[in-house]
């Protein structure tokens, strides 16, 4: 039988994993998965946001039209979300404008060169057992962690 201390220790170890946020994460993940599954079964297309967006240029009309429809749905839901549940966008103050412009350029260039983002490689590619997507996913998570650790070290050094 676990003692009170052991139980308290288990709670502290377990609670950050099985928190309410994790449950919402799982639920939201299932919805994203459902979206990707439907787009594949109905239209035969990969639900990768960077790929869907990039395909709006230098493309024939029948390509532009379904991509516009998808992104219209995405933005409509986003507007409803922003009006009714603004807290889902977080309470934090966004980073400075120059940093956001640099980050936006890196994300745009990176996902265009790498042929996908978290949804294309992470959700669809991994689900198809694509080696390219596995390499891409590990790489962007690794470099993301490296960047956050660097920022943390720099802000620590500054204070």
């Amino acid at each position: 039988m676990a003692s009170g201390t052991q139980r308290a220790l288990m709670r502290t170890m377990v609670s950050p994993i099985f928190s309410l946020a994790s449950l919402y994460g799982l639920l939201g993940g299932l919805l994203i998965g459902l979206s990707a599954a439907l787009l594949w079964l109905l239209n035969g297309r990969i639900a990768g946001i960077s790929g869907i967006t990039a395909g709006l240029v230098a493309a024939p009309l029948q390509e532009v039209s379904w991509r516009s429809a998808f992104l219209t749905g995405l933005l409509l839901a986003a507007v409803v979300g922003a009006l009714t549940q603004p807290q889902v966008f977080g309470a934090g103050v966004p980073p400075s404008l120059p940093r956001m412009l640099a980050a936006g350029a890196l994300v745009g260039l990176g996902t265009a060169l790498g042929g996908g983002c978290t949804s294309g490689h992470g959700v669809c590619g991994l689900g198809r057992f694509s080696v390219r997507s596995l390499v891409a996913t590990l790489t962007f998570i690794g470099f993301g962690m490296l960047t956050v650790a660097t920022l943390r070290a720099l802000s620590g050094a500054a204070s």
Partner: peptide, 13 residues
């Protein structure tokens, strides 16, 4: 290279 650039921008923002 693309995934690495994307990861950096992702971490920054």
């Amino acid at each position: 290279a693309g995934a690495a650039l994307f990861g950096a921008g992702w971490g920054l923002s």
